[in-house]
Design a protein around this nucleic acid. Sequence first.
RNA 1: UGCCUGGUGGUGUAAUGGCAGCACAGGCGACUUUGACUCGCCUAGUCAUGGUUCGAAUCCAUGCCGGGCAGCCA
Length: 592
Amino acid sequence: MSAEPTSPAPVPNDFIRDIVAADVAAQRHAKIVTRFPPEPNGYLHIGHAKSICLNFGIAREQGGMCNLRFDDTNPAKEEIEYVDSITADVRWLIAGWADHCLGFKPKGAHPGKVTSNGQPDYYLAPVDPSGLSAEPFYASDYFDQLYEYALELIRRGQAYVCDLNAEDTEKYRGAPDKPGQDSPFRHRSVAENLDLFQRMKAGEFPDGARSLRSKIDMTSPNMWLRDPLLYRIRHIPHYHAGDKWCIYPLYDYAHCLSDYLEGVSHSLCSLEFVPHRALYDWVLENLGLPRPLPHQYEFAKLVPTYTLLSKRNILRLVQEKVVAGWDDPRLPTISGLRRRGIPASAIRKFVTSVGVTTFNSVTDIAVFEHAVREELNQSAARRLAVLRPVRLVLTNIPAGEIVACSATNNPQEENPTTRPLALTREVFIEADDFAEVPPPKYFRLKPGGEVRLKYACIIKCDELVKDAADTITEIRCTAQLDTRHGQPNADKKVKGTIHWVSATQCIDAVVRLYDRLFTVPEPGAAEDFLQVVNPKSLEVVTAKLESSLGIAQPGERYQFERLGYFALDPKDSAPGQPVFNRTITLRDTWAK
RNA sequence: UGCCUGGUGGUGUAAUGGCAGCACAGGCGACUUUGACUCGCCUAGUCAUGGUUCGAAUCCAUGCCGGGCAGCCA
C-alpha cells in the first residue's frame, strides 16, 4: 500500500447540483438550505434514502443545512410513532457524514416575526440538532402563519371560500382534455370571504361543507391550476398541533410556504410533482413575499428491482404477515436494512452511484448488492461458521488434544491482526463441501481427496460412516499437520480450501438466511404481488460458530468465510442465544 | 383525440456542437490458505426519419414509444 493519502470521495455531479452551483455563483441565496420533508404516516425506505442523500449531500457540499421537516398537514393519517422512527432513521443514515448539516429548530419554536426588505416577514432558522432543546421542524408549527397568509391571499382577491361539496368540486374541475367551469362562489366579496374563512376556522361548519380555494384559472390545461383547494375542514385533533384547529391546509399551499418560512433555497421532490410546480410558484408570488423565494426541482424516484417500495404495499406485506413487521430484514425499509446489517455507508454509496436524473428508471438490485459487498468486504471481521454441519473426524489427532492455529481477522487491513483457533479431533464442515459423487470441477472434499481446512492443515478423506438409511454420519480423514502455516509443508497446494469449526470449541446459534422477497424483477407489475413472493426468502438454521463469536455485539458485522456477511439481530438475540441475520451472501461464481 | 415530461449497451449513468466513456450485470483468463477480494481481456449503446453544420447523442422538424396529470392525500 502506498503512503499517499486516500483521495477524497468524488463529489457527485448531476443536473440539480449544477443548478445549485449556478445559484451559489450568482449569489441568489444567503445560504443553501434544502429540506427532507416526509409525512409521518409510515416508515422510511430505500427510496427515501435517495432523497435524503441528495438533500443532505448538497447541504454539506455547499456549507448549508438540510432541515428535517414533518409535512404533517393531514391529521387523519399521521402518528407520532412515525415521527420517532423517521427521525431515528435519518440520524442513522447521515451519521458520520452529514450530522453537522441536520437542521433542527429550537424545541417548541414557531416562525418569528422579522422584517425583510422593509416588510414584515416570518422566519424560522435551524439550530444545532445535538442539544436536548432541539427538535425537527413541523409544518404544523406554521398553521398560524399559514392562516395569516391565507387571509392575505383573500384580501388580495386571490382566494375565495367555496361551498361546493367534494363531488361538485370535481365536476366543475373538468377533465385533462376538457376545461373546467367557475365555481358559483368564485366571485364573493373579499369581506364575505374573510368572514366565511374566519368562521371556518372557528368551527361553525361541518367537515367538507366549505373550502378555501385559490382563484387561478378553471380553464388551465394544468389541472393543478384550476382553483386548487388551499384549506379543508376536518374536525379532528392533530398529533402535534393538538385540538386548536379544525381547518387544515393542503400540501400545495403548505409546502411552498413552509419552505419559505425556513429559508429553504432549493426544494427537491420527485417527478410526480412537476405539474404542481406552477402552483408552488403561484402561491409564493401572489403573496408578495420579501425574501428570495425557494424553487422546486424534480428528479426521478429510485425503483430497485425485486422490491416493493410504496408504503401501501409494504403495509400490506406487514398486515398479511408475509413479513414480521416494518423492520423485517427482507423489507427495503431503512429499519429493515439496518436490522439486516446493511451499513449506512453502503446505502449512501448505492444511492449516490445511481445518480440523479429526470428519467424514469429501474435500478438493478445487483448495484445495491455490489455496494453492500464493497463496504462489508472492507470492514467486516472474518470468522468461521458452519451453517449445515457434517461431522468430520481427524483420526490421527487424539481426542482431547488441541492443535493451536491462527486465523486472520481481516485480510483487507493494512496490518491484519490474528486470533487463535483450535483444531480438534472432531470438527464440523459444511455439508456442501463434501460430495460422495462430485460433479465435474468440484474443488472440495470427496472420497480419497484432499482439501485444506482454512487456517489449519490439509486433510485427506479416508472413509465414510453411514447410518442404516445410507446417510453419511461421519467423514473420517487424516490431518497432514506438517502443512500448517509455519510447518515444513505449509506451501503444499490443493485445489480446495474449506471452512470448519471445532466440534468441542464452538457455540450454537440460530442463523437466518435471507434472500430476495420476490421472485420477479418487478413485483409491482404483477397482477398480485403476493403471488410472486419468494417462498425461500427466509430459511432458519442452527449453525455451529467458532467460539469467539460468543461475544458478538449488535452493530458489529462479520464475514463468515466463504458464506457471506452476517450481523447479530438486535431484537431477537438473548444472552447465550445469539441470532444472526445474513446480510448478504458472498459473490458466488461457482454456483452459476 | 388536451397538457406536462422523458428516450445513450441487458440495467443505470457521463459526454453541455468536437475521440460515445464509466459502473453494475454477463463471458473468458490470471492470482488465491475465502470458487471471495484483486487484476487483465471481451461482449454490448445514442428510438426512427429528415434537416442545419466542416462536424450532431447534443440544435431544428416530424413520427414512434414510455411516464405523469381529473384527492377536500402527500
